[in-house]
């Protein structure tokens, strides 16, 4: 299974279906609870309001209590979410780029596996350990992949960089000494438009020697 297939998993149809339900007929949306798998979100909605639920998410070893709708993606919580005390989650390192699980700009780790945060519903992330680009470094000590990306100039505009860094770190967790072809395969779910690929490959090789 390629990296891209792993990331998308089975969430693709669910999320699209739910998004469709949520946005298509807003005046009378009732999201079947069976699809959500969450009792909290199963509250019936009336009068045109969309139901929401308060959930706990564990992001970068910190607990966040956030109110979400059934259709809310993990990426939306990270980027635009607000906790119940009114503080922005503001983890904007993961980017919204293609909004359909194609480009890897929103890659995060969920229980150690890379996931496209735009393809995962926030509710499905409950009880899981979410690591974003902001949680990859150990305090001021950058992850070896982060160091190597800087050293090799494996970034230009930098918009795709967080996704590539997370994917690279996940690749090296699984394969300590990837060949060039294995690096290409491992990062095939990420897209860069500036054309930083050659230096990304170099950076991953350097990081693999340091890990």
């Amino acid at each position: 299974m390629s990296d891209k297939e792993k990331k998308q998993g089975t969430n693709i149809s669910r999320r699209n279906f739910l998004k469709g339900v949520g946005t298509g007929t807003v005046a009378a949306t009732v999201v079947p609870s069976v699809l959500i798998g969450s009792e909290q979100a199963a509250e019936a909605q009336e009068g045109g309001a969309i139901s929401s639920a308060t959930i706990q998410l564990n992001i970068n070893e910190k607990s966040y209590e956030v109110e979400v709708e059934a259709r809310t993606t993990l990426l939306t919580v990270l980027r635009d979410g607000m906790d119940t005390s009114g503080n922005n989650v503001d983890l904007t390192g993961a980017k919204l780029i293609c909004d359909r699980g194609e480009c890897g700009g929103c890659t995060v780790m969920v229980d150690g596996q890379t996931v496209y945060a735009c393809m995962m519903l926030a509710m499905d992330a409950q009880g899981k350990k979410i690591t974003t680009i902001e949680g990859l470094a150990n305090g001021d000590d950058l992850h070896p992949v982060q160091d190597a990306f800087i050293q090799h100039d494996a970034l230009m505009c930098g918009f795709c960089t967080p996704g590539f860094v997370v994917s690279s770190a996940a690749l090296l967790n699984e394969n300590k000494t990837p060949s060039l072809d294995e690096i290409k395969d491992g990062l095939s779910g990420n897209t860069c438009r500036c054309g930083t690929y050659p230096f990304i490959f170099d950076a991953v090789k350097t990081a693999s020697r340091k890990m």
């Binding site: 904007t92 980017k95 950058l142 982060q146 100039d153 970034l155 930098g158 960089t161 860094v165």
Partner: peptide
């Protein structure tokens, strides 16, 4: 010479327009 913005870009700290969240901001 490695770029000055490198650290902000590899840690997700670099703020692009897309990442700006202002108080009470609408979409």
């Amino acid at each position: 010479i490695t770029r000055l913005s490198g650290k902000d870009k590899v840690t997700g700290k670099a703020k692009y327009t897309f990442d700006i969240n202002r108080p009470g901001m609408l979409y």
